[in-house]
């Protein structure tokens, strides 16, 4: 109950910034609309492809964590971490609680977008998902988000050691976009890149949640995705905990 009450307070806070959330929704939408236009112009447009990009926009909103700036720049570099270290709650959980309402708000927008397309452009969106599998899709999306969140938290902790990790963040973001199928569906990649993408965790927080919602994956494939997500989440949590316990010893809270 305590966690739910805390979560509801974070919801209150998030709803204060409804415009911010809407603006962040527009950005990937416009980006992916450009990609649909590109492939259509190249004569490769199809209902499946536009569905992929529309769902990739929505999937990105739901499963991509944007915690890195707040953690590395504001909390670690500028020292706001001081506010959390004296509180009897884990920093990881506090950031997660802080992000969940934002994701829920995005989900509301995302549902509206899907509804909009289904109503006005039914041919642009083809979802063949068996609704019996929908709970598995929700699980895949949840684990996908946790993978992204834990990875971004861990990456942000590098700010304990390095003065400026902004460039590194940008580099990693590009790698994530490519490896998670943000540019194009993974089967379109060269075989080596496909193999690498399937080994790294990024596709499991981008590409696989999207194709699971699209209805492309079989039950067995969904279970495999969930298993790989579970393994990666365990690995990332171990890395996260190791980086946190070492990094926080480097924290100097200078000027605070």
């Amino acid at each position: 109950m305590r966690w739910i009450r805390m979560l509801s307070l974070y919801f209150e806070r998030t709803f204060e910034y409804r415009l911010r959330s809407l603006l962040w929704l527009m950005l990937p939408m416009i980006n992916n609309m450009t990609l649909i236009l590109f492939w259509t112009g190249a004569g490769m447009g199809s209902s499946a492809l536009s569905t992929y990009y529309i769902l990739m926009t929505i999937g990105g909103l739901l499963t991509t964590s944007h915690v890195e700036y707040e953690v590395s720049e504001i909390d670690i570099k500028q020292g706001q971490l001081v506010n959390y270290l004296t509180k009897p709650i884990s920093y990881y959980w506090m950031n997660l609680l802080n992000e969940i309402p934002y994701r829920v708000l995005q989900m509301i927008y995302a549902t509206t977008i899907i509804g909009f397309f289904l109503l006005f452009f039914p041919r642009a969106l083809s979802i063949t998902l068996n609704m019996l599998y929908f709970p598995l899709v929700i699980l895949i999306f949840t684990l996908g988000y946790l993978l992204s969140f834990t990875f971004k938290m861990s990456l942000s902790y590098l700010a304990f050691w390095f003065k400026d990790i902004h460039g590194l963040m940008e580099l990693v973001t590009i790698v994530i976009i490519i490896m998670s199928g943000g540019i194009m569906p993974l089967p379109w990649y060269p075989q080596t890149l496909q193999t690498i993408s399937n080994i790294l965790p990024f596709a499991y927080s981008g590409y696989y949640p999207v194709v699971s919602l699209q209805g492309v994956l079989s039950l067995n494939q969904m279970i495999t995705v969930i298993t790989v997500q579970g393994i990666w989440l365990s690995i990332l949590l171990l890395i996260h905990n190791a980086l946190w316990s070492r990094g926080v010893k480097e924290f100097t809270a200078v000027g605070q």
């Binding site: 805390m6 209150e12 806070r13 204060e16 001081v82 509180k87 709650i89 605070q256």
Partner: peptide, 25 residues
Amino acid sequence: MGQKSQLWWDLPAMESYLLYKEMYD
């Protein structure tokens, strides 16, 4: 810490107090 805010800036202080109530159980 003087001049250092731990309260939520855009909400009334009461909301932060309610959060601290839960945080500290």
